[in-house]
């Protein structure tokens, strides 16, 4: 570590931290609305209703079958060309929307798989005591699914945090973008600055990963099932 590296460190760090805050904001908004959307779709898909389940299946496949980079470009540059006012998003909205939709595809799969993992007998028992479908879901099925859902969700959130780095290509000043802007000032320190950026991501993601692992160990079922979902298991789209 030479004097030069220390100088560069102090002159780029304020900007990197600013970008870090933006990354935090992007991840939080993406997590929040991606989870809400994903949970809703997942609960519907978990019921295996004739028309909706295949439709949601198609939604998941389209989002899983294309790189996030390409989804982002389409949200930014193709949707506005439809000429429809409600699809003309500004940069921030487009970034939030595409991150949330990307997250929702994973959350949907986790939630619906967790609901389907609850034995049929549970449904039958709740119907037997006179619960409606909604009541069974609320009081019997969902409380049991939560244990299965939580560890897998953690992994999805780490993926989302990392996916925010791709938003840098459309000029949102998040951590990676701030790194690139700093590199313009110190072109010769490109590797050093990228390493600093990587360290900041690590500081953010590592605690989340540790929590996920801890949750997985605590719920043994979750561990087995969680790895299957996290590894991007190609689920049937029935």
């Amino acid at each position: 570590m030479s004097q030069h590296h220390i100088d560069v460190f102090f002159s780029v760090m304020p900007f990197l931290l600013q970008g870090f805050a933006e990354t935090l904001k992007l991840s939080l908004v993406g997590v929040l609305w991606g989870s809400v959307l994903g949970a809703l779709l997942g609960i519907i898909r978990g019921q295996q209703i004739a028309f909706f389940s295949p439709l949601i299946g198609a939604y998941i496949h389209i989002l899983r079958g294309t790189p996030f980079l390409v989804q982002l470009y389409i949200a930014y540059f193709v949707l506005p060309n439809t000429g429809l006012a409600w699809l003309m998003w500004d940069s921030q909205t487009a970034a939030f929307a595409s991150l949330g939709i990307y997250t929702s595809s994973y959350v949907t799969e986790i939630v619906s798989a967790a609901i389907r993992a609850i034995p049929r007998g549970q449904w039958e028992a709740s119907f037997a005591v006179g619960f409606t479908r909604m009541q069974s879901l609320r009081h019997v099925i969902l409380p049991q699914s939560v244990g299965l859902i939580m560890p897998s969700l953690g992994g999805v959130y780490v993926n989302l945090i990392k996916a925010t780095s791709i938003v840098s290509v459309v000029g949102i000043a998040e951590l990676t973008r701030q790194g690139e802007i700093s590199i313009l000032r110190f072109p010769a320190d490109i590797l050093y600055i990228y390493l600093l950026v990587a360290l900041l991501y690590f500081a953010f993601c590592f605690p989340v990963l540790m929590t996920v692992d801890w949750l997985e160990r605590r719920t043994k079922v979750g561990a087995k099932y969680g790895t299957a979902v996290l590894s991007g298991r190609l689920e049937a789209a029935e």
Partner: peptide, 22 residues
Amino acid sequence: THSIRATPLLLQIYIVYFGLPL
């Protein structure tokens, strides 16, 4: 394993591309 899982692929690619020759 942890350092790979906790950092974006985009950075890993750049670090390999620019760092490996060093």
